[in-house]
Design a protein around this nucleic acid. Structure first.
Lengths: 147, 147
DNA sequence: TATTGTTATACTCTATAACTATA
DNA sequence: TATAGTTATAGAGTATAACAATA
């Protein structure tokens, strides 16, 4: 029985992790948000909103990217006015990446858009099942085959 | 309530779609399977196993990739002996991509490895919840925010 | 005239290495 | 000596466009 569940989950994961699926989701989410916001820069914005100002090195670990990659993406966001660089008071080598007001509003809009899409697809579910699914999914991600 | 579920799901999806998460999963799955099997060629192997012999053009639509990309990946798999090209009897322009015995065994091993990892992470779940989660996940992928 | 598989080209993104400044 | 941010470089991957063969 559990083996069958495993196979079903494996297949669903395959679809979810497909290039085309991810690209479509990111495209619809970031549509109209400006050129700087896309599949590549969204994780930085999201991480900064979640954790507050961070250095590029810290952010790199969080996002799973090299420092140089963070620099490039952050520079794009800075040019677009979504992020600014501030000197780190506790370490003069470092520069903290901080969301601007525009950046904060953009992240909020992106999150709302995603939550709306998800809520729309859950609206036809029987009462309570969405909450159950959310709980299961969180648990699965937390101690699933990814850690 | 549903809004809260939406936020929780959104956050979990963020983690799941992260570069680092995907890379780690693919790396552990394809480890020791030979150089030709990796994050890029796995979708082709999986699709061929699921649907049987296909032309590159058909496979391109399925995998969400350009024809030229399919050609390149298929050539790597062919060099490694996992796939062979056969003339399409019904269309002499086309070449069918077919899994070799080695390719079939490889796909089976990959699927078993993934199913095992998933089953292991589900083994501590209360009875019945894994099946419920699998059903929900399939439904969510099918008519979720991805279509 | 359209479509197939393939290849060459330009483009993008990445990690690596090198650099300067600070710890 | 090690680590911060940045930049240049090389490598890998993609889509686009072009090609000959077939529909």
């Amino acid at each position: 029985m559990e083996d069958d569940a495993g196979r079903q989950i494996a297949e669903a994961l395959g679809t979810l992790l497909k290039r085309a699926t991810r690209a479509r989701l990111h495209r619809t989410l970031t549509e109209g948000m400006g050129e700087a916001v896309d599949e590549l820069t969204y994780p930085l914005l999201s991480a900064l909103a979640r954790t507050g100002p961070r250095s590029a090195a810290e952010l790199a670990r969080d996002v799973g990217l090299d420092r140089s990659g963070v620099t490039r993406r952050a520079s794009r966001l800075e040019d677009a006015g979504l992020v600014r660089r501030e000197p780190d008071p506790s370490d003069r080598r470092a520069a903290l990446l901080v969301l601007t007001d525009h950046g904060r509003r953009t992240v909020e809009a992106l999150r709302r858009r995603l939550a709306d899409r998800i809520a729309a697809s859950l609206s036809s579910w029987p009462p309570g099942e969405a909450e159950t699914f959310a709980r299961h999914l969180r648990r699965f991600i937390a101690d699933g085959p990814f850690t």
